[in-house]
């Protein structure tokens, strides 16, 4: 499974570069630079989350402008775009992490299954248990590895006794592909692990509460290629059970792990579609510039 994932990714990479080269000569209609309308189909057949007319303001600053998209069940969707375009901002709307920023204001509709995320009756505690998050910088708690993973199940009261908890912790670590490395040292502090191991620990911590959606904000940006490859494999495996939204700056990574890709630019959702199509056949000039590296 793991080798195939990487191989597929590599072959997709190659296909990507040839396709981009080929596309230059093709004559498909491409939307011009000036258009800020979203290109591509924003809906999917089995949506897990539905976002419509989402606007985010930081005080006066309009950071996300009228964005609408669906996130399909058990799919990996990648958010790409230049720095400062609002990927993280939009991602953090999905589990209301933006609530912690006092000047941040969100309008529009975001639904998780049938529940309105921004509805007054929804408790963020419940929401964040259902929509987990992995951050850009690995941020394990300064506690033992075991405690890191056990924290979520504990506060949500998901287990009845120590044996169940032990099992859950081991299972989560196993699914995060970390169990072999830490089996003997569960009592050591999580911060004593390497960067890549810490990030997988954070993923284990997130999946320990068995969320429905996992948000990942540039999870590999602090990691070397080998650690990155491990996490990408992991994402591929996790897709069977979870819906994953990943923000990335690496086009290759988006191509390797995601089924759908959304391209943001200056707060607008410029283009969204199947990853293959976005990378081989972008339909908006801005997308094309960005993925071919012509973007400033």
């Amino acid at each position: 499974m793991s080798t195939t994932a990487v191989e597929t990714a590599v072959s997709l990479d190659n296909a990507l570069s040839t396709a981009i080269g080929a596309r230059k000569q093709s004559s498909v209609e491409v939307t011009d630079y000036d258009s800020r309308q979203t290109v591509g189909k924003i809906t999917v057949d089995h949506p897990k989350m539905i976002c419509r007319e989402v606007n985010v303001y930081y005080g006066e600053k309009h950071a996300i402008k009228n964005v609408g998209l669906d996130i399909g069940t058990n799919e990996v969707i990648a958010f790409i775009g230049p720095s400062g375009c609002g990927k993280s901002t939009f991602l953090r709307c999905l589990n209301r992490m933006n609530d912690t920023i006092p000047i941040c204001r969100v309008t529009g509709q975001i639904k998780l299954d049938d529940d309105d995320v921004y509805d007054k009756s929804i408790d963020v505690v419940q929401l964040r248990a259902r929509v987990g998050m992995v951050f850009q910088k690995p941020n394990p708690f300064p506690k033992s590895i075991y405690e890191n993973v056990a924290y979520g199940p504990r506060i949500h009261g998901m287990v009845n006794n120590k044996t169940e908890l032990d099992e859950l912790v081991r299972d989560s670590l196993e699914r995060a592909g970390l169990i072999k490395e830490v089996e003997k040292r569960l009592d050591e502090p999580g911060t004593s692990l390497s960067g890549g191991q810490q990030q997988r620990l954070c993923i284990a911590r997130a999946i320990a509460v068995n969320p429905e959606v996992i948000l990942m904000d540039e999870p590999c940006s602090a990691l070397d290629p080998i650690a990155t490859a491990k996490i990408e494999e992991l994402i591929d495996e996790l897709r069977e059970n979870y819906t994953i939204v990943i923000v990335t700056h690496s086009m290759q990574q988006a191509a390797r792990v995601s089924q759908r890709t959304a391209y943001f630019h200056l707060g607008d959702l410029i283009e969204i579609g199947d990853t293959d199509q976005i990378f081989t056949n972008p339909r908006h000039k801005l997308t094309e510039d960005y993925i071919t590296g012509r973007f400033g």
């Binding site: 589990n95 992490m97 912690t100 963020v124 505690v125 419940q126 929401l127 964040r128 248990a129 987990g132 998050m133 951050f135 910088k137 941020n139 394990p140 708690f141 300064p142 924290y151 979520g152 506060i155 949500h156 954070c202 911590r205 997130a206 509460v209």
Partner: peptide
């Protein structure tokens, strides 16, 4: 570090739990 608060809040800890734990 704020990353600790984000980690706890992201896990679904309430504000008081984040602070207390």
């Amino acid at each position: 570090p704020p990353s600790i608060r984000e980690a706890a809040l992201g896990m679904g800890a309430s504000k008081l739990q984040t602070v207390g734990h």
